[in-house]
Design a protein around this nucleic acid. Sequence first.
DNA 1: CTGGATCCCTCACGATACTG
DNA 2: CAGTATCGTGAGGGATCCAG
Lengths: 225, 225
Amino acid sequence: MSRLRSYGQYCGLAQALEIIGERWALLIVRDLVLGPKRFTDLRTGLPRIPTNVLSARLKELEAAGVVHRRTMPRPSAAVAYELTAYGSELEEVVLHLGRWGAKSLGDPKPEDIVTIDGEVLALRATFKEDAARGANARHQLQVAEVIVHAIVNDGALTAGDGPLPDADLVMRTDALDGLKLLLSRDISATEAIASGLFTVEGSIAEFERFVDLFGADTQAATAPA
Amino acid sequence: MSRLRSYGQYCGLAQALEIIGERWALLIVRDLVLGPKRFTDLRTGLPRIPTNVLSARLKELEAAGVVHRRTMPRPSAAVAYELTAYGSELEEVVLHLGRWGAKSLGDPKPEDIVTIDGEVLALRATFKEDAARGANARHQLQVAEVIVHAIVNDGALTAGDGPLPDADLVMRTDALDGLKLLLSRDISATEAIASGLFTVEGSIAEFERFVDLFGADTQAATAPA
DNA sequence: CTGGATCCCTCACGATACTG
DNA sequence: CAGTATCGTGAGGGATCCAG
C-alpha cells in the first residue's frame, strides 16, 4: 500500500481496511472461507473481476498474512489459495456483513448473478442455530443453475456446493428473486409452491422447516431507507 | 454506484460492500458510531480525507440509509450527521474488524496519527466484559495530545473523549507506541512506569487492572505473518 | 467560521489481449 | 492453468474557491 494512499491512522480499523478494504478483497476472502481455491475457481466465482486485479489482491492478501499460496505437490503443479488462520478470523465479519447487506438487498436486477459461494455463504449466514437445536435435515436447493445443499446434523450446519443425492427435500426456483421472496417471508411456503415459483420434492412440512431455519426473523428486522 | 463498477452479484456481502466498501466509508461510520458529528468534526477526525470525498461518501451513505443528515434547529443552522438504526448495526462489525486489524498493526510510523475517536473505539473494542464483571473504575488516558476516558460501572463500559476530573487512575504516555507495548503485554505495567514510558497517578494495582481490562488476551493471539 | 463545490492531476481499476 | 502486458477511464487525492 502506497504511503500516500494510506489512511495514516494508527487504528485497528484503518489497518484492517488497508488489508481488506480494497475493491474485491473481501469478496475473495468470502470465496476462500469455503475452502482452498485455485486462481481459475476464484475467477469463476467472481466473474467480473479483472485477472490482473485478482492477481494483485492475492499478492496483497498474501503479503498481509491473510492468504497462503500453496503450490500443490507433483505432478499437478497446480496452485491453490487458502486462508491462513489469521484470514479465517474474518469469517465472522464476512457473515455478519453479509447479513447486514442482505437487509438492503432489493429485488435482483437482470444483470445480477448468483454464485455458488454466495449462496452457500448465505445459507451459513442466515442459519438460525437456536431454531435448529437437535434438528436433522438434508436439503438441496437450486436457484437457476446454481445447486447447493445444506445438511443439518443434530443442529449443526454443513453447507456446501453441488447436489445432495439422498436429500429429503429438493427445492428448485428459476427466478433469482424467488428465494428472496420466500426467505424474506413475503410469500409463504405454500404460496411459493402454489404459484409455481418453487418446485419441491419432499413434504411441505419439511419445506416450511427450511424457511424456519434459513428465513428472516419473524420479528421485524431493521430496514434501511 | 455506477452499474459498471458494481460487483454484479446478488449477495449480501456484495451489497454491503457497495454501501460501505468505498474508500473512507467505514472510517466515517466509525467516527459516527461515537455519536452525531458535524462535517468539520469528521474532517478533523479524518485529516487526510479530501472534502469532496467526504461529501460524496456522506451522500452515498445517506442514500443507502446508513447516515441521517439532520439540520439543527435554530439558531445554529448547523448540520449534523448521525447513524440511522440501520447504520448503527455496523458497530459490531466495526469493533470486530478493529480488533482483527489491530493484531497486524505493527509499530506506528512517524506519520501515523492517533485520533480521539480511534482511541475511544479501541477502548470499546478491547474491553473484556468477562474480566470486568461487577468492576468499577474511572480511568483517564492520555496518548500524546489525545485524552480519553473509560468508566466502568458495575462491569459496564462507557468510553468517551476528554478528561475525567475525578478519575482514580490517570495515565499518560508520549510515544505513540507506548500504549501498544503495554496493551500487547510486551512490557508489564511495572516496567511501563519504571522505564518512564508511562506516568501514572493512582495505584499500580489499578494500573494493572487497566491492562487486564483492555490488554491483549494472555493466551497467544493469532498473529499474522 | 461552517459546509461544502470546483478544478486538475494521478493512479487504481477495468477490459482485453497475450504468454510461460 | 495461472497469470502478465497494455491501455483507457474514472474515482480518489489535493488545493482552492465560494455561499450562507
